[in-house]
């Protein structure tokens, strides 16, 4: 009886797993085979790279990718700096109004910038940052999630370590840099991976604030590329999609354990 249950459980788990991975495998199948095999499975269908060539010629993928890398990088660097400073102040520095400030920070976990596209667009227009990398990144740089995560981590650092460093003559910033930041490395890694994968995939806000290929990221480029009006063939769309998700997918497959641990680490807090 237990073996029967186990068999059933095994079959169900793997059926679900195959269904879950199927769309991606299918995209690979369609992209690497001639168009007439798009819905016909044949183990001996000839392989081809023509769809990738066509896709590459029809959209400026290099430029999109460059924009995405710059935007994600810009966001990450600022997030790490701003959240470290704010997280430390909220974790270890006594000042008046701390709990109020913390509540304001937590509020952003609910009211995410995605929802405020209308007003944030107005703000960006006033700052003349429409269609720039900085414009795409600005609303995300002070991340409530990052501040919260780092605050929780800093709080677990023993106070004695800080006191010892202070006795040695370290300043506030010195303590932060030499004691807290090194001890929070796993959190930084976890947060960094979650942040990069989120902003690499982000779409709505970049769609709103970008107008040209000067700042347009991959996701927005992909949406334009894949639009039915553009009259692009299905396998070509698949190839384009694979080009666009390729870099992140490869990094994910290589470091998948790290990614999963990071998401779990970030989710536990």
């Amino acid at each position: 009886m237990p073996t029967l249950t186990r068999m059933f459980s095994f079959t169900a788990a793997w059926t679900l797993g195959l269904v879950w991975i199927f769309p991606l495998l299918y995209a690979f199948w369609a992209a690497f085979h001639p168009a007439e095999y798009a819905t016909r499975f044949d183990l001996f269908a000839p392989l081809t790279l023509e769809h990738f060539v066509t896709a590459w010629q029809q959209a400026p993928f290099m430029r999109y990718m460059f924009n995405t890398v710059m935007i994600t990088g810009l966001i990450l660097v600022f997030q790490l700096i701003l959240c470290t400073l704010a997280g430390y102040a909220l974790a270890r520095m006594p000042f008046k109004g701390r709990s109020l400030i913390f509540a304001l920070v937590l509020l952003q976990l609910m009211i995410v910038p995605e929802i405020l596209i209308v007003e944030n667009y107005r703000t960006l227009a006033k700052l003349e940052l429409i269609d720039t990398w900085l414009g795409v990144g600005l609303p995300y740089m002070a991340s409530a999630f990052g501040i919260f995560l780092l605050r929780q981590t800093f709080k677990t650092v023993p106070q004695e370590l800080e006191d010892a460093a202070r006795l040695e003559g370290c300043t506030w910033l010195g303590v932060l840099w030499k004691v807290y930041v090194p001890l929070a490395k796993p959190t930084y890694l976890a947060y960094g991976l979650v942040s990069v994968s989120h902003h690499w995939n982000n779409f709505l806000w970049p769609l709103v604030v970008t107008n040209t290929i000067n700042s347009r990221p991959l996701t927005v480029g992909m949406a334009i590329f894949g639009a039915p009006e553009s009259g692009v063939d299905w396998p070509v769309i698949c190839a384009g999609t694979l080009i666009a998700i390729g870099p992140l997918l490869i990094v994910f497959l290589i470091f998948q354990r790290r990614f999963l641990q990071s998401f779990m680490h970030a989710g536990l807090k």
């Binding site: 959240c83 400073l85 102040a89 000042f95 304001l104 600005l138 740089m141 002070a142």
Partner: peptide
């Protein structure tokens, strides 16, 4: 403390 919070706080207020 306020100086350390300032950059994050300005952006949080401005965009949320």
């Amino acid at each position: 403390a306020w100086l350390m919070l300032l950059p994050a706080l300005v952006l949080l207020l401005a965009f949320t």
